[in-house]
Every structure is written in C-alpha cells, then in structure tokens.
C-alpha cells in the first residue's frame, strides 16, 4: 500500500519537477532525479534509481527541440517506482515497460494541453497592454500564472493514478505472474532493451559520420573491459565460495573511468581545432582574410597539401 503522505509527496514532486525543468533545471527533474526522489519517498532507493536510470537512458537523445513536446519519462518513473515498490510481483523491469513507458507516452498529450492553456494568459497580457493605464502588476501576474497549467498537467494525473490505480496495477501484476507469464517475461526483456532506443535517437542528433571512430573506440574499449571485469567478478565469487580465506572484493567496471578516456579524447580534439584562424572566422570576413593569408603564407599551404 502507498501511504497517503507518500501520495502527497509524489504529487507535490510531480507538480514541481516540470517547473524546475522550465526554470533553473537542477536535473532533479530528469528521470534519474525522479528515481532518486521517488525512491527516497518510497523507502526503496535502489529500485527508484534502477527505474530512473533505465528511463534516463531510454530518453537520452530526446531533448526539447524547438519547444516540441516529448515523451515524459519523469512522470513515468515516478509512477513505476511507486507501484513497483508497493505492488507484489511487479519487478522493476516489468514496471518500466508496463507502467513507465505507457504513462510517459500518454503524458505527451497533457503537455500539449498545458502549452495551449498558456495561450490564454498571453492574450490577457495583450489586452492589459492595450489599456490606457497599464496595470503592470497584473501583466507580471499573468506571466506567473502560466506555472499553474504546467504544474497541474503533471500533478493531477500522478495523484489520480496513485490514489485510485493500485487495485488495477495489482490485477495487472497478478496476471503477468499467472496466466500471462510469457507477457511478463517479454515485458521484462523490453525493460532491459529500451535504453537502446535512447542511444539510437541520440546518434541521430550527433554527427556520427564525422566522429564514427570515437563511437567504435567507446564501444570496443568498454566491451572488452566489461567482459574482463564481469569475468573476474564471477571468478572471485567462485573462489570465495570454495575457499573461506579468499576475501578480496572485485568491483564492477567503473563508468567514470571510461568517461575519463572519452574526456581525454575530447580535449585532444579541442586542441586540434584552430580558433581565431581564418578558417574558423565568420562568413563575412572569411573571404578577405583567406585571400590575405593566402598571400602571406603561400609556401606553408602548399607544404600542407603535399
């Protein structure tokens, strides 16, 4: 059961996270932040973080480009965490694909609704400016009122789902572990595979063709190390089971270390980009600079071309 104060706190978080995203962007509005907070509220941090992490990876490349609505993985994470920690037989993976993803997809519509609602306040400001004596405080108030549709568009669905959805989710969970066991299995697999979509979307936005070497490097280095680390871990566990004196602990592959390799490559790349040289200048003075520099160091250019 979800306690009433948990419902209240999660609703409050849902209403505030979207404002955070619009305002200071503290990253607590992201799926991984939602997992952290929902996990803390529900008293099961690992489950919250796991669901948040999977959803984060799924939407990695889905930014808000030009103000378009996007799949709302944050709200999905909140609900999936709440139900996965309280409903019997709802594993985190199954919660990701049976709760988090559908919720996230439906929430897009409510985001659209909020953006439409704010048009009303914009028109009211137009009207206020037309007055002979402008009420400046009212103009400012009508900008800030915009927070209300934004906030409610998240808080209301979360509240309704948490307050009235538990029975339904329990029924789903029972079915997935009973008659529909195959479906439950499939949903679990889907939960594990969904991050792949996020990576593919991201690759669509990044200049992959230009930087494909780094993609291959990142994949290969990490694959080799992850196999190495996992093998050593299972070896260690095996030896420890046989020999009680064996107490060495082997950790998993630290991703920060992998990120450091990538960071080093990025620094090298940055240092190789000429800044302030003719080639990098803006279009207007590019042509004349190039022509003048071509006169000056003509010999050098021909050297380079050889």
């Amino acid at each position: 059961m979800i306690a009433w104060w948990q419902i209240l706190l999660l609703t409050l978080y849902a209403g505030l996270e979207i404002l955070d995203e619009l305002q200071i962007y503290s990253s607590l509005n992201t799926p991984v932040g939602a997992g952290l907070i929902a996990g803390l509220i529900m008293g099961d941090l690992p489950t919250g973080l796991f669901i948040g992490a999977s959803m984060q990876l799924m939407v990695l490349g889905v930014g808000t480009f030009g103000g378009a609505s996007r799949i709302d993985a944050t709200t999905g994470t909140v609900l999936a965490t709440a139900f996965s920690t309280t409903v019997k037989g709802m594993s985190p993976q199954a919660a990701i694909s049976s709760i988090a993803v559908p919720v996230a997809a439906i929430m897009v519509e409510l985001d659209v609704l909020a953006r439409f609602a704010n048009t009303y306040f914009s028109h009211r400001i137009d009207h206020l400016i037309e007055q002979d004596k402008i009420n400046y405080k009212a103009v400012e108030r009508n900008v800030l009122y915009g927070a209300i549709p934004w906030s409610l568009s998240r808080a209301i669905p979360v509240f309704i789902a948490l307050a009235f959805g538990q029975g339904l989710v329990q029924t789903i969970a029972n079915a997935l572990n009973g008659d529909l066991l195959w479906l439950g299995q499939g949903l679990t697999v889907a939960g594990a595979a969904l991050p792949a979509v996020g990576f593919a979307i991201l690759l669509r936005y990044l200049p992959v063709k230009k930087h494909v070497a780094y993609l291959i490097l990142g994949f290969t280095i990490t694959t080799l190390f992850s196999v190495l680390f996992t093998s050593i871990q299972s070896l260690g566990a095996g030896v420890a089971a046989v020999n009680k004196n064996f107490t060495a602990i082997f950790n998993g592959l630290p991703m920060l270390a992998i990120a450091m390799i990538g960071f080093a490559l990025a620094i090298l790349h940055y240092k190789n980009i000429p800044i302030g040289k003719p080639a990098g200048k803006n279009a207007e003075d590019q042509s004349e600079k190039i022509s003048s520099s071509a006169d000056n160091d003509e010999g050098e250019i021909t050297d380079d071309e050889l």
């Binding site: 490097l217 994949f219 990490t222 992998i258 490559l265």
Partner: peptide, 9 residues
C-alpha cells in the same frame, strides 16, 4: 566527441 564516445560505451 565525448558524447559519441559515451554512447559507444
């Protein structure tokens, strides 16, 4: 560059 590398990882 870092982004693409991380996606690979």
């Amino acid at each position: 560059v870092l982004g693409v590398f991380m996606v690979g990882a």
